[in-house]
Design a protein around this nucleic acid. Structure first.
Lengths: 119, 119
DNA sequence: CTGGATCCCTTTCGATACTG
DNA sequence: CAGTATCGAAAGGGATCCAG
């Protein structure tokens, strides 16, 4: 199972920096990306797979589960055939949007530059 | 050695989302935290260790090296005895500050809440 | 379509000891 | 003080098969 956070709990010093706390929540390898794609609205499992072809099914499931456990995303199952499951930002998850958008802005700006400089 | 990024390069589709790109740069487990502490000014190796007692010396070295390779931090060595090395945000690294500050704000806000809910 | 379960290799990471 | 080196444990992650 997922070990509960990077030290809060055992760690007695309560001054653990706020950034560390935030990264505990959204620091997963793919979480930022997944949250980003949910900003526009609910999104289905296989839509994620199309949008992020490099993430494996397994990882997608695991990361979504963790986000769900943390109350950041809602998972809505439509009992029908074929099954349909939609993921969306919870109210709590929405408070993270400013962070994600800052990341988006920065990424847009510097991705171009680095693709010019190439390597 | 550090493998070059999560797919950019091999991945032909150039639409890789900007958030993914950003996370490639600051997504390391401790990078956000380290950047955060450098906002206030240059900081020495052992200062980091005092501030973040849970990060091991090894990890601290590795993460700082990666940040240096990416041009985000400057590493200044003072040739003296005992040695003194200072790490600081580069001009490029400074462009990340808004993201870090958003993380700080969010963390401050929600750390309290969750410490009340406790467990 | 949306996953769960398993196998297994790779990478990460912590602990410890050592160095200029 | 600011690291490097090495080792073993743990976690990450891909591939494949199966199921409601």
């Amino acid at each position: 199972m997922r070990d509960r956070r990077s030290g809060y709990g055992e760690c007695p010093n309560e001054e653990g920096c706020p950034v560390e706390y935030t990264l505990d929540v959204i620091g997963g390898k793919w979480k930022g990306v997944l949250l980003y794609h949910m900003i526009e609205g609910p999104i289905r499992f296989n839509e994620f797979r199309r949008i992020c072809p490099t993430i494996t099914q397994r990882m997608l499931t695991l990361q979504l589960r963790e986000l769900e456990e943390d109350g950041i995303v809602n998972r809505e199952v439509y009992p029908q055939v074929p099954p349909k499951v939609e993921y969306s930002l919870s109210e709590f998850g929405s408070t993270l949007v400013p962070i994600i958008l800052e990341m988006k802005t920065w990424g847009e700006k510097h991705k171009k530059l680095s693709s010019i400089a190439a390597r």
